[in-house]
């Protein structure tokens, strides 16, 4: 089998994958990105680079990807549908591939209302489902989104998508995942899991449909710094489910940060051992990238497999 990326091989080989997330900065220096990349290099298989997350202007995901590649980590370029039409999406992804990026994660993107340019016009020329389908077609049928033939050097991305088991309507979430798999998604990263019970119900439905045999699911893990952070996600962010028990646990902890790390490690171990059909974790340590190595190591996921694609 010819692998599209290192992450592709790791997942196809049956390894329990570890990906993390690096959020680019709101300025023009890559110092922080490179610092985090150096720190994470030996502990993850690939890192996502967010695409102006929460609609806040930052260094672009593809430009950040260049820095990350340079530091020896495989990037997962996040591509939202919010800011680019079908022409710009294709142009940027052709460029990303030419720069050595091999994984792309397709998302709708947070609405601009939440960001630092709430008066901007959003695009949504294509949606995440269509983006998945069209990128697969670009690779497998050598066609631009319009259907025009790509004569040579078509981009051959390993295609990822997201799933949110905590959004509604719950019963449609697995349907929508199946739809993404049909469209061409090969790996899935989930929204941050805090409500394990709901995630397990979701995975049960995934297994009933046999979807875990058709796509690699990486469970989203977010270590929380404080009970206030937990409370904020519980009440201030749409489509997150944070149980009161978790908020209380952090509130009662002597050292909330340590407790947040402990919770994340417990979750990873639990998912790895008890939740069938999950093929890895995606650690989103928001503005707290430095805790990822400890979490990976103490979850028993270190060292990472060495992969040589050549």
């Amino acid at each position: 089998m010819k692998y599209l990326s290192k992450l592709h091989k790791i997942l196809e080989d049956g390894n329990f994958a570890v990906t993390a997330e690096i959020g680019p900065p709101k300025h023009a220096s890559a110092h922080g990105i490179r610092h985090h990349a150096e720190m994470l290099r030996d502990y993850v298989d690939a890192t996502n680079i967010t695409d102006c997350q929460t609609a806040i202007v930052r260094i672009s995901s593809i430009a950040s990807g260049v820095h990350i590649l340079d530091c020896g980590i495989e990037p997962i370029v996040q591509m939202t549908c919010r800011d680019r039409n079908r022409i710009a999406i294709q142009a940027d992804l052709l460029g990303a591939y030419s720069l050595g990026m091999r994984n792309v994660l397709c998302l709708s993107g947070d609405h601009q209302k939440f960001g630092n340019h709430p008066t901007a016009k959003n695009v949504y020329d294509v949606d995440s489902m269509q983006l998945i389908y069209l990128l697969r077609r670009m690779r497998d049928e050598k066609k631009f989104f319009s259907g025009e033939e790509i004569k040579e050097h078509e981009p051959r991305f390993y295609i990822g998508a997201v799933a949110n088991p905590f959004a509604d309507p719950f019963e449609f979430r697995v349907d929508r995942l199946e739809k993404k798999v049909e469209a061409g998604a090969q790996f899935i990263q989930t929204q941050c899991i805090f409500d394990m019970e709901r995630f397990e119900r979701f995975m049960e439905m995934v297994r009933e449909r046999g979807l875990d045999q058709r796509v690699h699911i990486l469970a989203g893990i977010t270590p929380l710094k404080s009970w206030r952070a937990a409370k904020y996600l519980q009440t201030g962010v749409s489509s997150m489910l944070v149980p009161d028990s978790l908020v209380e646990r952090l509130k009662n902890a002597e050292d909330q940060k340590r407790e947040g790390i402990e919770v994340a490690i417990e979750q990873i171990k639990y998912i790895k051992e008890k939740v069938k059909g999950v093929h890895g974790v995606h650690i989103m340590a928001i503005a707290w990238e430095e805790v990822v190595p400890e979490i990976v190591e103490r979850s028993g996921l270190y060292p990472r497999p060495k992969v040589d694609l050549e």
């Binding site: 709708s108 947070d110 609405h111 949606d127 995440s128 489902m129 269509q130 997201v162 799933a163 949110n164 905590f166 959004a167 509604d168 309507p169 449609f172 929508r176 739809k179 929204q191 749409s238 489509s239």
Partner: peptide, 8 residues
């Protein structure tokens, strides 16, 4: 092809 992950 909705709903997106922001529906709750």
């Amino acid at each position: 092809n909705g709903p997106c992950g922001g529906s709750q």
